[in-house]
């Protein structure tokens, strides 16, 4: 009987304690951040630099652009940036442009029933003049990479979104053969208009204050790149404008200020 009482008292006293101990025993890594002493290479730093950009998949004119960029990182995840692009190769024809020009008649003294003359056709094709866009950058991914097991670099990947303006230009917007009707039969679409800017980017840090910056932008704006009838009404007007996706890839060298980066716990 006494043994039973002792066992009962022991059970009452010990069991809650054991249960509590089990409850409080958790992994020591429970609250640990996944990366400790992480270099916060962007947090509250300015970023500035310049690079080169190139259009991808344009119908008639490719563009090689000088692209300055200025950004401020509010923290390691979010930044606000402004990017400019100024076309330094307005005459860089695509192969499709050359094919069109090569297939069309060139001699204005030779009657052409329907096909435009090559120089007129090429004249109404527009090209990028300049681009100025703002963008918010969201940086969910950051890490490091080993190249050939010997070169180590910190990097980040981000998505960007914003808007801006794009300037479209042409050498000879309305050749004489285009103005035979009103609205004209053909006319290059030249304007400065709003554009949507979306894309992805990455920094590959070569030091704590310098990085290679890659960005792929999709500039979405209304355009009629050929300057010719699109909707079949035999004239060229704003009704022929269509939303177009215009890809720009740029590679910049960017510098960061302050010079030193913080390190997380």
């Amino acid at each position: 009987m006494r043994k039973l009482i002792a066992l009962f008292v022991g059970a009452i006293v010990c069991l809650p304690t054991v249960a509590r101990a089990e409850k409080e025993r958790k992994s020591p890594l429970t609250d640990a951040p996944v990366i400790r002493r992480r270099l916060e290479l962007r947090d509250k730093r300015f970023e500035f630099g310049v690079g080169a950009g190139v259009t991808i998949g344009q119908d008639f004119y490719n563009a090689l652009m000088i692209m300055p960029k200025l950004a401020f990182h509010f923290n390691d995840w979010i930044s606000l940036a402004g990017v400019g692009g100024f076309n330094v190769t307005p005459g860089w024809k695509s192969s499709f442009n050359s094919d069109i020009g090569g297939a069309l008649p060139t001699d204005h003294n030779t009657p052409s029933i329907k096909s435009p003359y090559a120089d007129d056709a090429v004249a109404t094709m527009n090209h990028l003049g300049y681009v100025v866009v703002g963008q918010v950058e969201f940086i969910p991914l950051s890490g490091k990479i080993a190249l050939l097991s010997s070169l180590f670099s910190y990097f980040d990947l981000y998505i960007l979104a914003g808007g801006g303006i794009v300037n479209l230009a042409a050498k000879d917007p309305m050749p004489a053969t285009c103005s035979v009707s009103d609205p004209p039969r053909c006319k290059a679409y030249t304007a400065t208009e709003l554009t949507i800017n979306a894309g992805v980017g990455a920094h590959a840090f070569v030091s704590r204050w310098a990085a290679i910056n890659l960005e792929l932008h999709d500039l979405v704006y209304k355009n009629n790149a050929s300057g010719r009838d699109v909707n079949g009404d035999k004239v060229t007007s704003t009704a022929d404008l269509e939303w177009t996706n215009n890809w720009v890839f740029n590679l910049n060298v960017q510098f960061f200020l302050p010079y030193k980066a913080k390190i997380s716990r």
């Binding site: 951040p33 996944v34 990366i35 992480r38 995840w77 969910p140 991914l141 950051s142 890490g143 490091k144 990479i145 080993a146 190249l147 050939l148 097991s149 990097f155 980040d156 990947l157």
Partner: peptide
Amino acid sequence: VPGYGKFGLFNKWIVHWDL
């Protein structure tokens, strides 16, 4: 495979990747 790396996703998860 010339490059091997890892990144933190929101500093919560580590994802490994290679080039």
